[in-house]
Amino acid sequence: MIEIRNLVVEIEGQRILDGLNLTVKDGEVAAIMGPNGSGKSTLSYVVAGREDYEVLDGEVLLNGENILEMAPDERAAAGVFLAFQYPLEIPGVGTMTFLKAAMNAQRRHRGEPELATADFMKRVNNAAEGLGISKDMLKRALNVGFSGGEKKRMEILQMALLQPAFCILDETDSGLDIDALKIVADGVNALRSPDRSFLVITHYQRLLNHIVPDTVHVMAKGRIVKSGGKELALELEANGYADYRNLAA
């Protein structure tokens, strides 16, 4: 379970998150929707531990433990996973090398033994198959020359391999055609489980037809201004965010 309490965040003196409160229970899929500039991506980066932000107040509790003092790798080992809106290309770093390094780093952190190569390969191949990730993609440098859809699928592959407790999907639907969207959504749905929670950040209702949320939250000016069930997303799609911009003022 993740609890965000009164989170206040600034970047270069500008307030982005302004007393945000949000709880996502185990097994819950929460969607956050909101207009551009409402602070959605900042929220995802702050939870994952990016350094550029100044946290002035508040807590982020993962199963009761405040993770805000932890380095990004410690948060990852504790179970936080951010699927990036724009996954980075890393020339010269082989995808398999990276996957193995990430999995083993987390295992070491938790005091578990490193994976044997055969076991590692089996896990990767199984997960890759379901996401339509070819052997050729796995042989290339991480995300280098991948299409937008391939990059997003690679994010979900990492999620599947790392088995996090709390997954943030930051506009995972952006840049995806409908087929790619379905593959990604199926990948996410396959990972839904009673002990894993998701925070799905999106502009559009479309993604939520495929990843059906338990709760929907509207964010504006750095706060959650309305929460409801999945029907709230449909209402937003029909009416836009105009009503909520004023609510936050």
């Binding site: 531990g49 380095a71 990004p72 980075l88 890393i90 990430a102």
Partner: peptide, 13 residues
């Protein structure tokens, strides 16, 4: 950005 990406996957700095 690259460092953050790798660390967010669990790699110590």
């Amino acid at each position: 950005d690259l460092l953050f990406y790798l660390m967010a996957r669990g790699l110590p700095k």
